[in-house]
């Protein structure tokens, strides 16, 4: 359900008084409605569904899974039984 694709805003403008933007999806560009993400700025990434940006991507949060995996790597073995709390990555 609900195909949503990340893209980078390269330009913003208003059309019929609604905030719009041109978004780069890895080399193809599409005009997207930004009115649901008024905080979106040029250079930021947004998740786009049926021509609408749903959310601005939080770059810090985006990295957490990889930090978690790095942490597991650093532990060496998963089954060497570190205390469970250390593996918490909940927000």
């Amino acid at each position: 359900m609900c195909l949503g694709i990340p893209g980078k805003i390269v330009q913003t403008y208003r059309e019929h008084d609604v905030l719009m933007g041109k978004v780069d999806f890895g080399g193809i560009f599409k005009l997207v409605c930004l009115s649901l993400t008024p905080e979106a700025e040029v250079g930021r990434y947004v998740v786009v569904h049926v021509g609408f940006a749903l959310q601005v991507i939080d770059e810090t949060e985006a990295n957490k899974v990889f930090e978690f995996l790095q942490y597991m790597d650093d532990l060496g073995e998963l089954d060497d039984g570190g205390p469970d709390e250390e593996m918490e990555i909940q927000p």
């Binding site: 195909l3 694709i5 999806f25 890895g26 080399g27 193809i28 599409k30 786009v48």
Partner: peptide, 10 residues
């Protein structure tokens, strides 16, 4: 091509 990949994803 990356652009074909992206269009297909979209």
């Amino acid at each position: 091509k990356p652009a074909v990949h992206s269009a297909c994803e979209m």
